[in-house]
Write a protein that binds this DNA or RNA. Sequence first.
DNA 1: CAATCGCCTTAACATACGTAAAGTCGGAAA
DNA 2: TTTCCGACTTTACGTATGTTAAGGCGATTG
Lengths: 248, 248
Amino acid sequence: MHPQKLEGNPAQPVIRRLNALRPLSEHGAVLLQQAIQEGLHRAGPGEDLVIEGEAVDSVRIILSGWLCRYKTLEDGRRQIVNFILPGDTCDAHLYLLSVMDYSIGTLTSVSYAEIKRSLFEKLVANDRSLAEAFWCETLVSGATQREWTVSIGRRVALERVAHLLCEIQERLHQVGLVDDGSCAFPVTQIDLADATGLSVVHVNRTLQELRNSRLIVLRDRMLTINDLSALQDLALFSPDYLRTKRRG
Amino acid sequence: MHPQKLEGNPAQPVIRRLNALRPLSEHGAVLLQQAIQEGLHRAGPGEDLVIEGEAVDSVRIILSGWLCRYKTLEDGRRQIVNFILPGDTCDAHLYLLSVMDYSIGTLTSVSYAEIKRSLFEKLVANDRSLAEAFWCETLVSGATQREWTVSIGRRVALERVAHLLCEIQERLHQVGLVDDGSCAFPVTQIDLADATGLSVVHVNRTLQELRNSRLIVLRDRMLTINDLSALQDLALFSPDYLRTKRRG
DNA sequence: CAATCGCCTTAACATACGTAAAGTCGGAAA
DNA sequence: TTTCCGACTTTACGTATGTTAAGGCGATTG
């Protein structure tokens, strides 16, 4: 599947992402694109696509827009455990479990493809490269979750916020959504607080500090990282966990 | 595979655990036991079986003993991201990625089976129930990682420590290693601190508080939970994420 | 037997971060 | 236009948790 064939194709970020994890066969890419075309959906901002405790019977592939996975405690405390970005697949295999252990909410309006479990299983049965790519995605998402555990457990606020910004820009970069250090960043400080385990006030303080040291510009839902390597050093960020090289 | 066939069999906890995730075929259970018999190993306490940044080419199934997955930051800060208990499989599919994003260290002496990637792939290719069981294990471990993120991000110290104790006893219970509310607990307070994102001193304070309220007894590497439902309430613990029901 | 070591415990003190509250600002709605 | 609302910002203050330091105690070692 060559890049030039993908221009203007809504499946572009997905193919690009999966290809990076595990090169797709021509056949697999075609199958996947068909399945995506047939399952197109949209949702507005602030909607829940999946609710904790319910069963799901399909896989969703995000074509554009941002979402997050989150869990809530009985008393309302909320923790975002992951951001879901264009090209990401939600829950590629989670229908194997009986119920979801988290909710998925949209942060922006999103377009996505919903693929029924039966069709998804046919896809991965028919093309090994697809099956492996989806599994790699699940594994990388696990590695990301571990890194979040480290971040929240051991990084101080400044490092933690910086780390999250680095991660997001690295991931967007992989699907071609970073332009000269700038990318969309439609995350409110409330969301940022719920993602980092901090309070909103402290997230605000921390962002001010990053702004004052000229490391970032964050305004009008746009993030610009002025000095990526300085920010990465500050955050103790290494992109390895997000960059899976193909392996024999 | 009936329980009575497993008495004194080192593979018992593994079969038991996988069976709960996805009932194994007789054929699959036999294949697995053979593979385990042929790959038996031991390690002492305080050893690293896997080191962050290195490649692995095999899967390890823990038969007895405790381990943990951990990551370290450049300056030495360390975060345990998971405990690995008897019956658990390490990294069932992680050889798909090029390098490990974490280390695995032993907390006690352990016995385990090491299965080479090539053999493991034959196993799962030959028996669908095995393949699905291992994938379910990976998914449950992902759900656990998310719960840890919530715990560290949003639970206060007392809840957090209590939650960890509940999780561990639930998991040990599933493989038959809890006897009347008591189980082994070979985790130092240093480890506990690295797992909860707290300092050792504060872990100590927190344990004192749990002891003083008569919820637990923790002494000589043995943990007894006196009032499980009180502890679970305190921790906002729900075992759902660890209890995967089979699904059609 | 003394010496050492790892782990646990406690105390005193420091601080990163949370909470509460109020004000600003821009965009959407009426 | 006016009103409203959500998000951002800032201040003042409180506290959960971290840091440093020291002592105890059992197990191991020489």
